[in-house]
Simulated assay, not measured.
Amino acid sequence: MALFMSHMTNEFVKTLSSSVQKEAEELGYTGDSFKIYDGKNDVATQVSQIEQAVTLGVDGIIIEPVSTDGIVKAVKDAEKVGVKVVILNQRISDQNAADTFVGADNESTGAALMKKVMEDLDGKGNIVELLGPMGSDGQVGRSKGFDSVLAEYPDVKVIASDSADWDTAKALTLTENWLTSSDIQAVVAQNDGMAVGAAQAIKEAGLTDKIKVYGVDATSDGLNAIVNGGMTGTVSQGTENQGKISADLCSNLIYGQSVPKEVIATNVVYTKENVNEILKK
């Protein structure tokens, strides 16, 4: 069994990969029978890694894709030679090419987050958006969810929207630039890593009490930022459960068992009011 991660640069993907590995080990995939590949946010790298593993005779693969389109051919080629394929966390454009999908519905995740933002802003004000890598399933889906909710709130203006590639440092820099020229009531980030970067920039500008910050993934950094007042809210997509289920399904496929075509994680919005529920787990 092999796991292909889009990158390994933030807490979310590290938690996700660790949960896959832990469950795989519980199922007996240890040592050389389980390997993790880091795609480094590069489609060509991830495709090459998949091709290499298939050539070496891997039985089943779990892919957290760099791109919705770029790995489809590699998936189809793997399936042609009998390799079982689980797509994790972010869909590919031809999901039927794989055996199953485990992850969140990113559009509903984006909508759930933006509804909370609108509620907290009383449906008016200026917001900025920190997006994931352009064209990734997470970015596309969450942006659709954002837009579907914003269409109902004409008194809210998106005055800036840019990709920080899931990266904390990039998000900090973007937010610093926005703060110098804009009146902002909320920063809405598509993951907690970027939200934490935005919160740091806002803290350094002395504006924590005036600008709300939101993220996605309910990482420990994000949850602690809510406790400490730097962030206002985040949406959990059941990260560890996604990883566990993907390993289970991949093993089942390897052993010829039937699996559901998709398993969708449940969205839960966490704020200061309920954050202790998840921190106690």
Score class of each variant (00 low, 15 high):
Met5Val: 01
Met5Ile: 01
Met5Ser: 03
Phe12Pro: 11
Val13Phe: 03
Leu16Tyr: 09
Leu16Cys: 15
Ser18Cys: 12
Ser18Phe: 05
Gln21Ser: 10
Tyr29Cys: 10
Thr30Pro: 09
Gly31Pro: 08
Asp32His: 05
Ser33Val: 11
Phe34Cys: 12
Ile36Val: 15
Gly39Asp: 03
Gly39His: 04
Gly39Ile: 00
Val43Cys: 10
Val43Tyr: 12
Ala44Met: 11
Ala44Ser: 15
Ser48Gln: 14
Ile50Asn: 07
Glu51His: 03
Ala53Met: 09
Ala53Trp: 01
Gly57Leu: 11
Asp59Phe: 05
Pro65Arg: 08
Val66Thr: 12
Ser67Gly: 07
Thr68Ile: 14
Asp69Ser: 10
Val75His: 01
Asp77Gly: 10
Glu79Asp: 09
Lys80Ile: 06
Val81Ile: 15
Val81Ala: 07
Gly82Asp: 12
Val83Ala: 02
Lys84Pro: 00
Val86Pro: 02
Val86Thr: 07
Asn89Ile: 02
Gln90Asn: 15
Arg91Gly: 02
Ile92Val: 15
Ser93Arg: 06
Asn96Trp: 11
Ala97Ser: 15
Ala97Thr: 14
Asp99Met: 07
Phe101Gln: 10
Gly103Lys: 14
Ala104Arg: 15
Asn106Glu: 12
Ser108Phe: 04
Gly110Trp: 08
Ala112Arg: 11
Val117Asn: 00
Met118Tyr: 01
Glu119Trp: 05
Glu119Pro: 05
Asp120Cys: 11
Asp120Val: 06
Gly123Pro: 05
Gly125Asp: 13
Ile127Asp: 09
Val128Ala: 08
Leu130His: 08
Pro133His: 05
Met134Thr: 14
Ser136Cys: 11
Ser136Trp: 08
Asp137Gln: 14
Val140Met: 12
Val140Ala: 06
Arg142Met: 12
Gly145Thr: 09
Asp147Glu: 15
Asp147Val: 13
Ser148Asn: 12
Ser148Ile: 10
Val149Cys: 01
Val149Glu: 00
Val149Ile: 06
Lys157Gly: 04
Ala160Phe: 11
Ala160His: 13
Asp162Glu: 15
Asp162Tyr: 13
Asp165Val: 12
Trp166Phe: 15
Thr168Leu: 04
Lys170His: 14
Ala171Pro: 11
Thr175Arg: 13
Trp178Ala: 01
Ile184Ser: 05
Gly193Ile: 10
Met194Leu: 03
Val196Gly: 04
Lys210Thr: 02
Tyr214Leu: 08
Val216Cys: 06
Thr219Val: 03
Ser220Cys: 03
Ser220Leu: 10
Gly222Asp: 03
Gly222Ile: 04
Gly222Cys: 06
Asn224Asp: 08
Ala225Asp: 05
Ile226Glu: 02
Val227Trp: 00
Val227Gly: 02
Val227Tyr: 03
Val227His: 03
Val227Lys: 09
Val227Glu: 08
Met231Tyr: 02
Met231Cys: 04
Thr232Arg: 14
Ser236Gly: 04
Thr239Arg: 10
Glu240Phe: 06
Asn241Gly: 01
Gln242Gly: 01
Gln242Cys: 02
Gly243Thr: 04
Gly243His: 07
Ser246Tyr: 00
Asp248Asn: 03
Asp248Lys: 07
Leu249Tyr: 03
Leu249Cys: 03
Asn252Asp: 13
Leu253Arg: 06
Tyr255Ala: 01
Gln257Ile: 09
Ser258Thr: 05
Ser258Val: 02
Val259Ser: 04
Val259Tyr: 00
Val259Gly: 06
Glu262Trp: 04
Ile264Cys: 10
Val269Thr: 08
Thr271Gln: 08
Lys272Tyr: 06
Glu273Thr: 04
Val275Met: 07
Leu279Phe: 02
Lys280Val: 07
Lys281Ile: 04
